[in-house]
Nucleic acid binder design. Structure first.
Length: 272
DNA sequence: ATATGCACCTGTGTGC
DNA sequence: TGCACACAGGTGCATA
């Protein structure tokens, strides 16, 4: 479900209520949630305070006392919800973190069970984090152009490759390619300096606007307070197959790129 | 290196 | 409270 703008919205929404709260006895309702964890025992967290939240790529981070960090990947359907203390978790809730000092519990739900959580100690290695490419809102034009230049595959696949750039998913890849006027199958190495620069600008513009609008809610995404995003109203190609391009009127097309649905305007995004 | 297809799961929408 | 199938904001792996 969530890409960078959604995860950013989520961790920002979590911060005010999590910051300073003390962690109680964590309940893991779906043990495979921890399948990627080899760090210190979760019990160590009991009684520790939460210092704040953060994000790296699509990973949501909850930073705790003692250099301990909870790392969540929400994959397609993961979400956080604030619940009343002791509220009965529903069938899709995989983890309950009681928060003393706030009078409530934090629930992690995940319908499809793809998501995972890692528990990192002060010096725990984290392949999930270390393997990520640079942040799209942190990388400069030049470095971005170099990444594009180094790849012979479809630029759409490159944008989705988290080791190349971290945080972009299917919606935002399509949206930034449309705004840059680039066909999703264009080879990274054939873009050239000028179009690399245009894509860099489009990437920043799309992600920034999406964050400002609190992400895209097209099926079931909502923030921890249940607030949906509004960026879906601004989608110009994603999910619009057959509808008119808002710029030129041509019907939006859908093709498969790297196994993912890819929406584009055949006239505004000409193949090279 | 790059591409493809499947696997991991559950739910929803569509067409028959 | 029919049934089959396609598809979904994401990876990870095995195979060409």
């Amino acid at each position: 479900m969530p890409e960078l703008p959604e995860v950013e919205t989520i961790v920002r929404g979590l911060a005010p209520r999590l910051k300073g709260a003390k962690i109680g006895r964590i309940r893991v309702l779906f043990p495979p949630l921890l399948r990627r964890t080899s760090g210190p025992a979760l019990r160590e967290l009991e009684g520790k305070r939460i210092l704040g939240t953060g994000r790296r790529g699509k990973l949501a981070l909850i930073r705790c006392e003692g250099g301990r960090t909870l790392v969540f990947h929400l994959k397609m359907t993961g979400q956080f919800l604030f619940a009343r203390r002791g509220a009965l978790p529903d069938k899709h809730t995989r983890l309950v973190i009681p928060l003393s000092g706030t009078g409530g519990d934090l629930h992690f739900r995940d319908i499809r069970k793809f998501g995972f959580m890692c528990f990192l100690g002060p010096a725990s290695p984290s392949p999930e984090i270390d393997g990520l490419g640079p942040e799209p809102l942190g990388i400069g034009r030049g470095d971005f152009a170099e990444i594009l230049e180094s790849r012979r595959g479809a630029v759409k696949s490159l944008l989705l490759d988290q080791r190349a750039i971290a945080g972009i998913g299917n919606i935002y890849a399509d949206e930034m390619l449309f705004r840059a006027g680039i066909h999703p199958l264009t080879r990274g190495s054939s873009l050239g300096e000028d179009r690399a620069k245009v894509l860099w600008r489009s990437m920043r513009a799309v992600l920034r606007e999406a964050i400002a609008r609190k992400g895209s809610s097209i099926r079931d995404y909502a923030g921890p307070d249940g607030e949906p995003g509004g960026f879906q109203e601004r989608h110009r190609v994603y999910g619009r197959e057959g509808e008119k391009c808002l710029r030129c009127g041509s019907p939006i097309r859908r093709i498969r790129v790297g196994g993912r649905s890819s929406f584009f305007c055949p006239r505004c995004q000409r193949p090279v």
